[in-house]
Write a protein that binds this DNA or RNA. Sequence first.
DNA 1: TAATTAATTTGTAATCGTTACAATATAGTA
DNA 2: TACTATATTGTAACGATTACAAATTAATTA
Lengths: 142, 142
Amino acid sequence: MNMTLEELTNKLKKKKIRLSYQRIKILEYINNHRIHPTVDQIYNDLRKEVPTLSKTTVYNTLNTLADSNLVKVITIGDNEARYDVTIKNHGHFKCESCGIIFDFNIDFNSFKIDGLSNFQINQKDIYFKGLCPKCIKKDASE
Amino acid sequence: MNMTLEELTNKLKKKKIRLSYQRIKILEYINNHRIHPTVDQIYNDLRKEVPTLSKTTVYNTLNTLADSNLVKVITIGDNEARYDVTIKNHGHFKCESCGIIFDFNIDFNSFKIDGLSNFQINQKDIYFKGLCPKCIKKDASE
DNA sequence: TAATTAATTTGTAATCGTTACAATATAGTA
DNA sequence: TACTATATTGTAACGATTACAAATTAATTA
Ligand SMILES: [Mn+2]
Ligand SMILES: [Mn+2]
Ligand SMILES: [Zn+2]
Ligand SMILES: [Zn+2]
């Protein structure tokens, strides 16, 4: 799961993204914190290590990485975007009580779809919402 | 597809939503314009008929209707919400070129899911993105 | 290695969708 | 008709994101 600095820089080089300290740090953060963080989480955590970091740079970098498919933008919340390293396709479940976003496996090829012939599908997002096990228990004991 | 005024008011009554001219007009609009309109579209179109209408009322009403499951909020775009009459579950496809949101049929019960045992699922959103047939042709002829 | 240049970072201001709020108006009820 | 709780309205505030210009830096070249 954790990638070396060299592996990360190679990822950027392959996509012809110029190397910068900030970009490497942000890509490193996304790889080491697979909790679908928000821009604010990334910014506030990284600021400790990179005090000069600007929030604009976090936005710019995440947009750059998303354009190159190195990160995936998750817009399951209504308000702020969350970010995920792009690994194999999976679904996202957001608990409406605690707000945590969980990954789940779903077979993207088994969908029985009707009405999209002659459409070119570039992206499939599966967003579920409800209650996570912990919050179900908490609710029951109130 | 088009519902009578009486049917619409009954829908509101059943959900114990107080009847107001604005609410009926907005619910009527959503029912007659099944193109997943934005708040601005609803507001600007309805303003012709209801000149005193406030945009806040459009937001308030749509939130009320969504809370009662009379409309569904679609957050496939990154920026603004779109609204749909709640009929049977279906998927949404957004064309990345023209921006139109298309409905498609998908069997919500056929999903092969792994990792959500003991979760309570309240909502399933299926969002696809890509190019619609018209935009594929347009791109090819350029 | 030093100079050059194009791209990146930074801080601030602006934008845009949405919500908060208080005053006015209205719907439902008696 | 009178009463009261709720809805509407206009404006201000909010929060996430982007625009912009000046300062900095990465990659390239001499
Ligand atoms: Mn994920
Ligand atoms: Mn629809
Ligand atoms: Zn939870
Ligand atoms: Zn299109």
